[in-house]
């Protein structure tokens, strides 16, 4: 049975190996230089003093395209596995009628399905794992450089780093097989698999992932870094706009400005003159002085910024939880497949 499964699967496996080998070769060739550029750049700017933000910005801009490309590869790979390995696994046999040939050899269909699911599913998980780990290693300097713009905990990178792609691949594969068994047509099964998988991948960061652990709340002073702009209309007040600037390095879920009694206010704070006079359009020393006076006045009035987020230290716990959830879903679908092939499919 293992021989037959391998004989049917080897072309697809060879294609996947070639694609992965190309990806790993690219990452392996460019990765060491990337890491070296990063460490020398950090060392240089640290030696020069004055912070590294300019270097980090430059570094990220230099590597943005390959960074986004390999991230996209890891995000798309599980869907491709579900579409091209999962959905046709059974429907191809049903459409060609060959299930009636193979189910009448001296092998029960439960065992037939077990070997097909096991061998192909484990290969899918291995492929997704290898791709993700190679990309995680390659992109780690860029992930650090872009920690504020693209935090690893954020919805985009979280699904393309670490071990969750293994869970995604297992789930997408099992989903494809299950849908294929139910609709019995390859094309329809592929379309439904894609739609359901995308829906689950969107629902997960929106509805489930934020609640895996209790959110961290923190209330911070409003400083120059969260001020988005200051306007002074002619009616005698100055309006300070506060952004949801994320300085947590984690996954920011909400950010409000609250007043002294703790009630949320809109993201504009009216401050009455004359305590908050900017004196000059930015930039310049006079403007900075004016802004500090303004911030002092805001602090005196009791305005604070309240944020809820998951800190970046939760990256690995979240990875394990989510991989576990998807693996459990995949096992559940596989169990359903065994029940269905014995009871209903003929």
């Amino acid at each position: 049975m293992i021989w037959l499964t391998w004989r049917q699967f080897r072309a697809a496996a060879a294609m996947m190996s070639a694609a992965l080998a190309a990806l790993v070769a690219f990452l392996g060739l460019t990765g060491p230089r990337l890491a070296e550029d990063y460490s020398t750049g950090i060392a240089d700017c640290a030696a020069a003093g004055g912070g590294c933000s300019e270097f980090l910005q430059q570094f990220f801009n230099d590597y943005q395209d390959p960074f986004l490309a390999v991230t996209a590869v890891v995000l798309v790979l599980p869907a491709l596995i579900g579409l091209f390995w999962g959905a046709p696994l059974i429907t191809r046999e049903l459409e060609a009628g060959t299930h009636r040939l193979v189910w009448n050899q001296s092998v029960t269909r439960g065992r037939w399905l077990a070997v097909k699911l096991g061998l192909t599913g484990l290969t899918a998980m291995t492929a997704a794992g290898l791709g993700s780990l190679a990309v995680t290693w390659w992109a780690s300097p860029i992930d650090e450089a872009a920690a504020n713009e693209f935090p690893r905990m954020g919805p985009l990178l979280f699904g393309a780093r670490g071990i969750v792609p293994i869970g995604y691949a297992a789930f997408a594969f099992a989903l494809g097989v299950t849908v294929g068994m139910l609709v019995r047509r390859t094309l329809a099964a592929m379309a439904i698999t894609l739609a359901v998988f995308v829906a689950v991948q969107i629902a997960m960061p929106l509805l489930v992932r934020p609640h895996l652990l209790p959110l961290t709340r923190s209330t911070t002073e409003i400083t120059a870094s969260n001020v988005d702009g200051v306007t002074a209309p002619a009616n005698g007040t100055t309006i300070v706009r506060v952004t949801a600037a994320d300085n947590t390095g984690g996954w920011l879920l909400s950010s409000h400005t609250v007043d002294a009694s703790g009630h949320a206010v809109a993201d504009t704070i009216p401050v009455s003159t004359p305590s908050c006079v900017l004196g000059a359009p930015e930039p310049g020393a006079a403007w900075s002085r004016g802004l500090s006076a303004c911030l002092a006045e805001i602090k005196r009035l009791g305005y604070r910024q309240q944020v809820t987020y998951h800190p970046s230290s939760r990256f690995w716990p979240f990875q394990w939880y989510e991989t576990g959830i998807y693996t459990a879903l995949a096992l559940g679908l596989s169990g359903f497949c065994f029940w269905w092939i014995r009871r209903r499919l003929s």
């Binding site: 049917q8 060609a96 060959t98 009448n104 001296s106």
Partner: peptide, 21 residues
Amino acid sequence: SPAQLAKVGFVAQDTPTYAGL
């Protein structure tokens, strides 16, 4: 069971075979 399957041969309608093999 596998033993029962081994005792009975079945040639299905339209005699399906694996086209790629």
